[in-house]
Nucleic acid binder design. Structure first.
Lengths: 289, 289
DNA sequence: TCAATCGTTTGACTAAAGTCAAAGAACTAT
DNA sequence: ATAGTTCTTTGACTTTAGTCAAACGATTGA
């Protein structure tokens, strides 16, 4: 992908410098990055994996920031081995100040553009970012009983419980055995190691599968992830020898319905009676597609 | 500009790493960057200013690359103080190899996207890059006799001499005194310190200006730079108390004509007779706009 | 309960990145 | 011709960045 490389080269040389050298100012880059990554408090373990740092290196930088009064380190409430790090007011002030500076710099850079072009640039960057994020998310087949799978289902249940007027009863969730091995499949979408979406496939009857629990974390919405999960589920259905997949949705989930229609699903009569189901869809699968 | 900052942060963390850490591989980053920046041979002076390096630091890195057989250093033909650095075949092979690797990596990253989205991403990145380039170009008022001004006019003359069937006679270029002080203005557009475009304004008669020699280097075309230069010239005309600006163009310069029309110019009868003029335009200036 | 593992700290490093100043050859302007 | 400037090289640093292994308390799994 030459375009990406070209863009990358241009961008990091021209704009990246803006960030790293102005932002760092009188602080080593490593420390500055750390300060930014802390946000509203994280564990050292989390930071270590997010930034890919050596444990010793991180420990020393933390100590330095602490002695400068920028961060506070505490023992994690649930596990005495872990440390939780958070910004002090001074630390937060510094982060804010750097953000202000970066904004001013960016503002200056865009000064030369008229309003139309500026809007165009912002939109293009937003699109790039959205698609790059989507590209970086992986959708993986996991066991339906895996902790990540259950975590996603819990989040899914909580989301729709808040959304359905009648609430949602978790006993309606798929059981691990319904979605494993020959019976079905369960996918979890990961962004930077964190689960941000899921989807389940189970066998309804021979040759017919049912898609359930397609869920996307609210921070990962509007990227087109649901559709990717759906594609993955359909591929799995084909691999399981299914010719048709069905699904039902609640009347309140209008975006979901629109997505299913756009993905080639057609509305059908009720194939099962269900408290939460008001619309039923079906898609005939193309072998190999 | 929060959007730019957000994008920047995301992009450098996610994609920039791709570049810097995979590309460097068994070579310090500084050296790798140097190797890339050399391209088809540059002076050390140029490299130093482009990458913002300390002279001593650069000298040492150069020596290291030289002893590895990656670059060749020669005395500059025109100035014995300067050194010219260029890639050896081995150096070029390494750059090519790194590029291949970066492409493969980018390709892998975009694997997850379907063709539509991939195309959308590429377009969005190209748009971003184009507009960022445009934003980074400065248009500056310079003396019509300045070396950069004359260099631009020479390039302009060479361009149109190649384009006009009848050729172009440089005696038709504006004289420095026509475009300085009260009489007019001359603007040069700079990208990373290099002149990449120009435009001249001279007084035709009281209250009426003429725009001439709007030129953009071929590597900076299709960015919207001509229009920016035009805007700058119109602003200068207003500042000079002019109410109207006119210009003429050659029949072969159809894109230029389209741009003038789109910028609010209307075609008028010949206001001057001229070998190279086939179309005449005029724009009434809004005070303050 | 006891061995294995986890998360962190500390010590002891190395390599890369960058700075500063002195010096010398080459050029420029007067 | 000469004083001042430019460009590069060299020496002598300092700071950042990063690695590796030992050690230790806390937790987990068998």
């Amino acid at each position: 992908m030459r375009a990406l490389r070209r863009f990358n080269r241009y961008f990091t040389r021209r704009i990246g410098v803006l960030d790293d050298h102005y932002l760092g100012q009188d602080r080593p880059l490593g420390e500055a990055r750390l300060l930014f990554e802390i946000g509203d408090g994280v564990s050292l373990r989390e930071l270590r994996s997010r930034l890919g740092l050596d444990a010793g290196y991180l420990s020393r930088m933390t100590k330095a920031l602490q002695s400068q009064g920028m961060v506070r380190v505490r023992v994690h409430p649930a596990d005495n081995r872990l440390r939780t790090i958070e910004l002090t007011p001074a630390g937060r002030a510094e982060v804010d100040e750097q953000n202000r500076r970066a904004d001013a710099l960016a503002e200056g850079l865009l000064d030369a553009l008229d309003a139309d072009r500026r809007a165009q640039l912002i939109e293009a960057m937003a699109t790039s970012q959205r698609l790059l994020r989507l590209a970086a998310i992986t959708v993986e087949l996991v066991d339906g009983a895996a902790p990540d799978a259950r975590a996603c289902l819990d989040a899914y249940a909580a989301d729709i419980d808040a959304r359905f007027p009648e609430g949602f009863d978790t006993s309606d969730l798929v059981k691990p055995e319904e979605v494993s091995g020959d019976a079905g499949a369960f996918f979890v979408a990961y962004e930077e190691g964190r689960p941000v979406g899921c989807g389940a496939l189970r066998r309804l009857e021979p040759g017919v599968g049912e898609i359930r629990h397609v869920w996307v974390h609210h921070e990962a919405r509007r990227l087109g992830l649901a559709r990717r999960i759906l594609t993955e589920l359909e591929r799995a259905a084909t691999d399981h020898g299914m010719k048709v997949v069905r699904l039902d949705t609640h009347r309140t989930l209008t975006e979901a319905q629109a997505m299913y229609r756009a993905s080639g699903y057609t509305e059908i009569p009720a194939y099962v009676d269900h408290v939460y189901a008001h619309h039923w869809f079906e898609k005939r699968l193309q072998p190999g597609g």
